[in-house]
Every structure is written in structure tokens, then in C-alpha cells.
């Protein structure tokens, strides 16, 4: 069975194709604004412009003919409405043209499912740290439950905002990581874990205010927010008694965050799994893969309208 998936929740437009358990194409184009920050409308225009070309590339890469596709999956939310709409319209058109079923996928759930595909994790906790999203999720009674999340901005967006205001290149994550490596001194920043939830706003304000070498601020910023992410993940693992951790989302590209996950898991006798980078960041293979699993377990999407606030725990997990 072959499923084509479409990702279009934020700055990435992607098309992925999955045949049974193999990813045979995973193409994407990301919108790079000249000046930092996310512009929903401009991003959507970008997606509308590149969708045809990304589709063509994906089909070529996969080596299949477009008629061989059995199923179309698209990310239904959560995300920026103008971007989600481009993906949804494209998906509907394609499904109609090919006369194939259409299935809506929750973007956050897809991150977890692709993580499971590329690791041997059976029942993991996922630390999902991206630009807009920061959640710790795990399966409990048939749904992926959110055990902790940011109560203001996503960790990636926070880092980008910091970078933008400090004149670093966009996206700022890699630049902050590079500078942080040269940092030697820790300057104190607020540490804001509330139960299982996180807040980044106060840290951002403080980090922008301190008078210190940039390297030291980046080092302190990274160490503080990552420690918070790991702590909340560990709390979720302790509360659910789960013994596996997967790291996903764009911020997963950060080496220091990976190392911290590894150490935390070692210390509590758990296993840490990494997902190949192209499947950590927003990608469409994860939408195709999750759509395929859902379809096989009998899920249908009668209402294909976008769901901008699509919560992870709204999806009933009927597949294994």
C-alpha cells in the first residue's frame, strides 16, 4: 500500500511517500523569511507557489507513478491556519483527481509515530520540541496524552526571538548552539517549571537584559531551558513509569539537548532513542506514515476542514 502525505502546518511545505514500512520520498521546501519572524500569509503564499514542484520531485524520487498511490494524508493541525489551508486544499484536489481516500493527520501525533518507526521504541515518552510546539506526550488509555507543555511560547520560537532581538541569523537555534559551546560562565536565569508545565517568557526577557558576553548568555540560556525540558520529560517518565524516551521536533537537532536526554535516561535506567534528523524536523513522510497506519486500522476523515488547535489528546489511537 502506498500513501502520499502532505505537511503544511508552519514554514515547511513537504510531500512524503511511504510504501508499507518504507519511506520512498521525503521532499520539502521551507520558507525563509528575509527578516526573522513568522509571517503566516507570506508563508502560505510560498507554499502555494512550491507545492507543484515539491510534488513532482517527490514522485520522481519515489520511482512510482502517481496513479499507484492508494491514499492521501495531510496534516490537519495544529498549525497556522493560512498554511494549513494550502495543504488541505492541495490534498483534497489530489485525492479527487486520483479518486483516492483522504485522511487527516494530527501533526504532533505524526512526530511520535515516525519516531517509533525509526527506532525500536515500543511505548515511549516523546519530548517534542519545535518552533511552535513544546510538549511531552505519551500513550495512556488509547490516547497520546500531554503530560507537560509550554504555557506560553514554543522553545524554538523563544530561541529565535532571542536571536532576532540580538541580531543573530535566522533560524537562531544553530547559531545559539555554536556560541553556547564557547560559553564558559553561567549567568543565572529564571527556571520556570510549574508542575509538569513550562514557561519561557520570563527567561527570554531576562536573557535579553543581562549584560554579559554573548557566548555566556547563549550557554546559560541553552543550559537553563534544556534542563527544564529534560526535567519535565523525566517527570512524565516517572509518573507513567515508562522506560523509553524519544526526542523529536526541530530543536532535536541540538547536540547538547541530545546529550542531556541520554544522560537522564542512563541515570534512570531508561533507553533513549534518536530519530534521523530529517524525520525530527517538520516533514511529510511522518504524515504519510501515520495516515497509512490510521487508514489500515479503519480510521476515516469525513470532515477534512483544518483544525488549528488540534490537540494531541483529541486523537483516538486505534492502531498499534
Amino acid at each position: 500500500m502506498i500513501c502520499l502525505g502532505i505537511e503544511s502546518t508552519a514554514h515547511t511545505f513537504g510531500i512524503g511517500i511511504v510504501q508499507n514500512k518504507t519511506v520512498i520520498a521525503n521532499e520539502k521546501k521551507s520558507y525563509q523569511p528575509e527578516k526573522g519572524g513568522l509571517h503566516p500569509r507570506k508563508t502560505a503564499e510560498h507554499h502555494a507557489e512550491v507545492c507543484g514542484e515539491v510534488l513532482e520531485k517527490a514522485i520522481n524520487k519515489s520511482g512510482i507513478r502517481i496513479e499507484e498511490i492508494d491514499l492521501i494524508a495531510f496534516s490537519q493541525g495544529p498549525g497556522l491556519p493560512p498554511c494549513l489551508k494550502i495543504g488541505a486544499v492541495f490534498a483534497r484536489t489530489l485525492a479527487k483527481k486520483l479518486g483516492k481516500p483522504l485522511i487527516g493527520v494530527n501533526h504532533c501525533v505524526a512526530h511520535l509515530e515516525i519516531g517509533k518507526l525509526f527506532t525500536n521504541a515500543k511505548d515511549p515518552v516523546l519530548l517534542y520540541a519545535s518552533g511552535a510546539n513544546t510538549q511531552v506526550i505519551a500513550l495512556e488509555s488509547g490516547k497520546y496524552r500531554v503530560f507537560g507543555e509550554t504555557i506560553d511560547v514554543g522553545v524554538g520560537n523563544m530561541l529565535d526571538t532571542f536571536g532576532r532581538n540580538k541580531g543573530l541569523s535566522f533560524p537562531a537555534g544553530p547559531e545559539i548552539e555554536r556560541l553556547a559551546k564557547k560559553g564558559e560562565k553561567y549567568v543565572e536565569l529564571p527556571y520556570t517549571v510549574k508542575g509538569m508545565d513550562l514557561a519561557f517568557g520570563g527567561i527570554l526577557t531576562q536573557a535579553e537584559r543581562v549584560k554579559e558576553k554573548m557566548e555566556n548568555v547563549c550557554h546559560s540560556l541553552q543550559e537553563t531551558v534544556f534542563a527544564m525540558l529534560i526535567e519535565v520529560s523525566e517527570r512524565a517518565m516517572s509518573h507513567t513509569q515508562k522506560k523509553e524516551l524519544i526526542l523529536g521536533g526541530g530543536v532535536a537537532a541540538n547536540k547538547r539537548l541530545n546529550d542531556m536526554c541520554k544522560i537522564m535516561c542512563e541515570e534512570r535506567g531508561a533507553k533513549f532513542y534518536t530519530v534521523p534528523k530529517q524525520y525530527c524536523v517538520d516533514n511529510a513522510a511522518m504524515i504519510a506514515w501515520t495516515g497509512l497506519k490510521m487508514h489500515k486500522s479503519g480510521v476515516k476523515t469525513p470532515d477534512t476542514r483544518i483544525i488549528r488547535n488540534y490537540r494531541t489528546d483529541m486523537v483516538k489511537i486505534t492502531w498499534k
Binding site: 495512556e140 488509555s141 490516547k143 496524552r145 500531554v146 503530560f147 510549574k194 508542575g195 509538569m196 508545565d197 509518573h239 507513567t240 489528546d313
Partner: peptide, 17 residues
């Protein structure tokens, strides 16, 4: 209120039904 919210959320996550 946040104290109660934490409880509500963790109940939901762990004892959902």
C-alpha cells in the same frame, strides 16, 4: 487556580476515563 489546573491535567493524562 494553576495549582488546581495542574491536578486536573495530570488526572486527565493518567486517569483519563
Amino acid at each position: 487556580a494553576i495549582d488546581l489546573r495542574v491536578l486536573e491535567k495530570t488526572l486527565k493524562a493518567k486517569h483519563c476515563k
